[in-house]
Computed example of a mutant assay.
Amino acid sequence: MNQTPLNAIALFVALLSGSILVGPILHIAPEIPFAFAALVLALVVADTFGYQGKGMTLFLDGFARLSPQYRQRVIHHEAGHFLTAYLLDLPITGYTLTAWEAQQQGGGQGGVCIETPVDFSETNALEQVERYCTVWMAGGVAETFIYSEAEGGKDDLRQLRRTLNRLHMNVKVHERQAGNRARQMIRSNWDAYEALVQAMTDRKSVAECCQILGQHCTVAV
């Protein structure tokens, strides 16, 4: 099951427990919290199996984005992906910063869209994997620079580890190396990163973001 519905269920269970405790004080009939919980769980189950959890993702994402701090964290995370993809000359086709934008563009939970090979060829698998792994790690690395820890990036790590396992490559070694490369690239191009964060905050297009990076980037690897 997707982690989002599980988080939603945990949240509503906590709310139900709280309503049961305060219900008598507020003179709320005990049947009301249970009926509400049953309705919510039914909606979560229907959304999970009928829509792969997209509805709950949109709801929770929209709720979280009421916080300016959360919105800025997302932008800093995605700017890390964008910058490293640009430096590694990977094709950036677009970016979204909310689940709603992602749904409008065809699905997913948002992020920087990069053309990824359906399969890595044997002749250049290592070089390709290293480039993509660096980009996958860069979001969490960028968050860590700003906030000391990363809250996002779980899907990035899953994609990285799934790819490395499929190619029978050492996951721990390549994950650590990719994180170090991403860290060095962002640190060496910090002015470009900050300019990109502002550009993405202003919702500049991919072409405009790339133009801004071209004016600031100095180190590719």
Rank of each mutant, 00 (worst) to 15 (best):
T4M: 13
I9C: 15
I9A: 15
A10F: 10
A10H: 11
A10G: 12
L11I: 15
F12P: 13
A14T: 12
L15W: 11
S17V: 13
S17K: 06
S17W: 10
I20E: 15
I20W: 13
V22G: 09
G23Y: 04
P24F: 03
I28Y: 02
P30N: 04
P30E: 07
I32H: 09
F36V: 15
A37Q: 09
A38L: 12
V40T: 09
L41M: 11
A42W: 08
L43R: 07
V44F: 10
D47E: 06
G50S: 05
Y51H: 12
Y51D: 07
Q52R: 14
K54I: 09
K54V: 12
K54N: 08
G55D: 03
G55E: 03
F59R: 06
F59D: 03
F59H: 05
L60F: 14
A64Y: 11
A64R: 14
A64W: 10
A64M: 15
A64P: 05
A64H: 11
R65A: 09
S67Y: 11
P68G: 10
P68Y: 10
P68S: 10
Q69P: 01
Y70M: 14
Q72S: 14
V74T: 12
V74Y: 05
V74K: 07
I75Y: 00
I75N: 04
H76M: 04
H77L: 05
H77N: 06
H77Q: 04
H77P: 03
A79P: 00
G80T: 01
G80A: 02
G80W: 00
H81M: 06
H81V: 05
T84K: 01
Y86L: 02
L87N: 01
D89Y: 02
P91K: 14
P91E: 15
P91H: 10
P91C: 09
I92C: 09
G94W: 03
G94T: 07
T96Y: 06
T96M: 08
Q104R: 14
Q105M: 12
Q105E: 15
Q109T: 15
G110T: 13
G110E: 12
P117E: 10
P117L: 14
V118R: 14
D119R: 15
E122R: 13
L126F: 10
V129C: 05
Y132N: 01
C133A: 14
T134Q: 00
T134V: 02
W136S: 00
M137P: 00
A138S: 09
G139V: 03
G140I: 00
G140K: 01
V141D: 01
T144P: 03
F145H: 05
E149D: 10
A150V: 02
G153E: 05
R162P: 01
L167Y: 13
L167S: 06
H168Q: 13
V171R: 07
V173F: 12
E175I: 04
Q177F: 02
Q177D: 09
G179F: 02
N180V: 14
A182E: 02
R183P: 00
Q184P: 01
I186R: 01
R187A: 11
W190Y: 11
D191G: 11
D191T: 08
A192Q: 01
Y193Q: 00
Y193A: 00
E194L: 14
E194T: 07
V197N: 09
M200F: 00
T201N: 04
D202N: 13
K204Q: 14
A207L: 09
A207D: 11
Q211M: 09
I212G: 02
L213H: 00
G214V: 01
Q215G: 03
H216Q: 06
V219E: 04
V219Q: 04
